[in-house]
Every structure is written in structure tokens, then in C-alpha cells.
């Protein structure tokens, strides 16, 4: 029964993270991501000092082993990384496209003028 709970929870988390990263950009989303990274780092330190902290936490959630919990967390982190990276690349591509288009149109205009007016 506890397994179902953790499964539902993880699925919800995956969906929410994906949806949030899908929909929102800007300062707030960036801040949330940075806080997430910070929490992740802090927790990593804690788990180095107290190695069995993951296992205890896993038991709280009803997961068998600590490693499993880490794996689930990693899946969520990786998913969000994939989505944000994709979106960031798309943003970059949009800007790059505008730049290239501007160059292309300007060049065509100069050439058109050199060849004497709009009709060539």
C-alpha cells in the first residue's frame, strides 16, 4: 500500500516538475531551479556525513532501500534537466535564426540596390 503512495507521489512530482519547466521561464523559475540545486547539494553533504539518512528517509516514504529513493530523485532531476536544456536550446535557436535572417535580408537588399532598383 505504501508503494502505491510513493508511486503516485513520484508520478505527481514528475508531472509537476515537467509542467512547471514546460510553462514557466524567467526569474521565478530560475530561482526555483537554483534553490533546488542548493537543496540537492546540501542534502548530498548530509548524506555523506550520515550515509544511512537515505535509507531512513526511504522507509518514511515506504521505499525499500535508500538507493532506490536516490534513483527516483535522479530520474526526476534528469527529466527536468532534459526539458530545460531542450527549451534553452530552442530559445537560443530562435535568436540565432533572427540574426541569420536579418543578415540574409540585409544582404539581399544591398544586392538588389547594387543591381539597380527593385527590378533586376
Amino acid at each position: 500500500m505504501k508503494l502505491v503512495v510513493v508511486q503516485v507521489l513520484l508520478i505527481v512530482v514528475v508531472a509537476v516538475v515537467a509542467a512547471r519547466l514546460f510553462r514557466s521561464r524567467g526569474a521565478r523559475a530560475q530561482a526555483i531551479r537554483r534553490l533546488g540545486v542548493l537543496a540537492f547539494a546540501a542534502f548530498a553533504v548530509v548524506s555523506i556525513i550520515f550515509p544511512d539518512v537515505w535509507t531512513r528517509l526511504a522507509h518514511v516514504f515506504g521505499v525499500g532501500r535508500g538507493t532506490d529513493l536516490v534513483l527516483y530523485g535522479l530520474v526526476v532531476a534528469f527529466l527536468s534537466f532534459t526539458v530545460t536544456t531542450y527549451l534553452r536550446f530552442r530559445d537560443l535557436e530562435t535568436r540565432y535564426t533572427r540574426l541569420a535572417r536579418r543578415i540574409a535580408l540585409d544582404e539581399a537588399e544591398v544586392r538588389g540596390r547594387l543591381e539597380g532598383g527593385p527590378e533586376h
Binding site: Y96, T97, A100, R101, I103, A104, L105, E107, A108, H120
Partner: peptide, 28 residues
């Protein structure tokens, strides 16, 4: 062959090429 040529400095894709074409003809 007599066409006006607008040349993307790098390959961007067909959708981008269409949009560039639209922006060119808008200027006419």
C-alpha cells in the same frame, strides 16, 4: 534563372526559410 535570392548564412530549416521569404515579400 531570374529569381531574387535571399541567402541564409547557415542552414536553419525549411520553416525558417519560409519565414524569411515572407519577410522579404512583405518589404515589396
Amino acid at each position: 534563372a531570374g529569381a531574387v535570392v535571399v541567402r541564409h548564412p547557415v542552414n536553419l530549416g525549411q520553416g525558417a526559410a519560409l519565414q524569411t521569404g515572407f519577410e522579404y515579400v512583405r518589404s515589396r
